[in-house]
Amino acid sequence: MNVIEIKNLTKTYGNARGIENVSFHVEEGEIFGFIGPNGAGKSTTLRTLLSIIYPTSGSATVFGKDSVQSASEIKKDIGYLPSEVFYYDRMRVKDLLNYSASFYKKDCRKRIQELAEIMDLDLSKRIDDLSYGNRKKVGIVQGLLHKPKLIILDEPTGGLDPLMQQKFFDLLKEENKKGTTILFSSHILSEVQKMCDRVAIIKEGKIIKVEKISTLKESNHKKIKVETKVPVDVDFFDADGVTNLEATNNTISFLFSGNINLIMRKLSEIELSNVWVDEPDLEEIFLHYYEKEV
């Protein structure tokens, strides 16, 4: 069963670009990544799904129900964590969470305690006394306290330190094991790679590709930069799987995809003074997909 089904969803704001013909589906029990650079339309898609804004055309269903017609019913089983967390400043964390819980017709007190403990959140503090990261934690507890069947996360990790990020991801994985479906938007490839089963890539309001993470990993690119002691002919590196080859003075950089041992052997043949091996950033991955599309 598909928990989310988005069909040709388009949202335009006057002149500004929104999203165009976005279609994808999220299956029950999967962790689905939604990735793209800032301003690509990730939040617009998620907000349309939650009917905070309404589609210009196209439609979406959640749990098989229309996202606009059955908005309030659907939301009983959705937990949402926005990218920026804003709450009623003068409230205490505890009161805010209780207020949040009061919208769901079930007893959430035990779950609030559990989550606060896991996330190391002080419930007695006032919201406006909290740091950015701690507000984010409130958002996390707020989004999970009613045991939703679908969790929607909009760039959730900003402001969390690595330790907390890990705890949060563990928490999500645990929820996922219990059958919870997760839709996860991010502009950080590594965190999506770590978490998700499948991923939709969005750029400039359009879905470029929907792919399994495992497939994405196979075509994994490395960004390699070397500095040599003596000038080396650029053609030396021109091999299968090498793209974006560039050279300035003694520095040569390129993208490589394929058997990593081949390139390492090649590198060992020359005198290096320095080497950088990086994951290509998202732009480069996008570029890769974009070029393929055209």
């Binding site: 939650l50 009917s51 905070i52 309030s72 019913e73 659907i74 939301k75 009983k76 959705i78 949402y80 926005p82 920026e84 804003f86 709450y87 009623y88 400043d89 949040s100 919208f103 769901y104 707020q142």
Partner: peptide, 11 residues
Amino acid sequence: GKTAEFLLTKP
């Protein structure tokens, strides 16, 4: 106060 989102994502 940007808290509208909180309410609008509630059932």
